[in-house]
Design a protein around this nucleic acid. Structure first.
Length: 288
DNA sequence: AACCAGGGAAGAT
DNA sequence: ATCTTCCATGGT
């Protein structure tokens, strides 16, 4: 058993992280204890790392702990990048002070982009979430992980691509996946196993390079690549215009009669770059 | 019952 | 290249 105290620059609102992650029923966390149990694959073995907030929004302090001393260093590195403790939310807050969504940024001050715990998990989630309401998408994801993933220390791990690549389409139909969603998920997993799609290389590539290569894969469109870049890799400047949630949030914030067109969304978002991802996240939060 | 949902592929211009 | 249309499934 090991434990490490980490401090980061404020503002950082861990309660908002807990609120957002608690929407996903498969994630193991406790709001009252301010802890999240993060399932991680380190050196190809499953490990559960616990993050506990013990500071305040302006003086954030975290207690990170795990069982296996041998992976402590690697675990801390992963946790640090997932929770983005090296990123200054103050700069973002200042940037949006003079924009047309300043009010939303005041309301959600200190809300960080927290990465999905694993890039492949992120892809699985994205494909499942395509064109489904959040409630049903979470139901499907939970069903999928509990059937094909595994549990360690009371925390659920997603199945690895090797497992998903070996499934039959009909098996997912039984879980109420559409035929097409089953194809997208299984076929993409096969491409990953075969090495035709290589997720390990993505971190070194630019947003544009990743978009260009991944969009060729059947079942992965612009929205999915943008979500992967934003929530999987933490890239700061993504704006998924196809996203219904963003359209609804803009409609509400600017009191529009109907959902905005892509051109209108370009106009509203002119001042938001280079932090479009934060605008996206905070707009999502504004309608939750 | 009809319309919607934090899209995407296939077909038609 | 850009725009329709169809696709599947459960929720409201």
């Amino acid at each position: 058993m090991w434990m490490e105290i980490i401090r980061c620059k404020g503002p950082y609102n861990f309660d908002s992280v807990l609120d957002r992650l608690s929407m996903d029923p498969i994630i193991s966390l406790s709001k009252s204890e301010k802890t999240i149990n993060v399932p991680l694959h380190i050196e190809d073995m499953p490990h559960v790392i616990t993050v506990k907030a013990i500071g305040t929004i302006d003086k954030p302090v975290f207690e990170v702990s795990g069982k296996d001393e041998k992976v402590k260093k690697a675990a801390l590195k992963r946790i640090n990048s997932i929770f983005r403790w090296d990123f200054s939310l103050e700069d973002v807050a200042i940037h949006f002070q003079k924009t047309n969504i300043a009010k939303i940024f005041e309301q959600h001050k200190g809300t960080p982009i927290v990465l999905e715990f694993d890039l492949y998990n992120c892809l699985v989630k994205c494909i499942i979430h395509q064109q489904l309401n959040l409630a049903f998408a979470h139901t499907l994801t939970t069903r999928f992980v509990k059937r094909y993933g595994y549990e360690g220390e009371g925390v659920w791990f997603y199945p690895k691509p090797e497992v998903v690549a070996g499934l039959q389409y009909d098996e997912l139909r039984e879980l109420q996946f559409s035929r097409r969603k089953a194809e997208y998920l299984i076929d993409t997993s096969k491409l990953i196993v075969e090495g035709i799609v290589n997720f390990d290389e993505l971190a070194q590539q630019s947003d544009e390079e990743i978009m260009k290569s991944l969009i060729k894969v059947r079942g992965i469109g612009p929205w999915t690549v943008q979500s992967l870049l934003l929530s999987g890799l933490g890239r700061p400047n993504l704006f998924p215009k196809a996203d219904i949630g963003i359209q609804r949030a803009i409609q509400k914030h600017f009191n529009l009669e109907k959902k905005p067109s892509h051109d209108e969304m370009d106009q509203y978002s002119e001042q938001w770059s280079p932090y479009l991802s934060y605008a996206t996240l905070y707009l999502w939060r504004s309608i939750e």
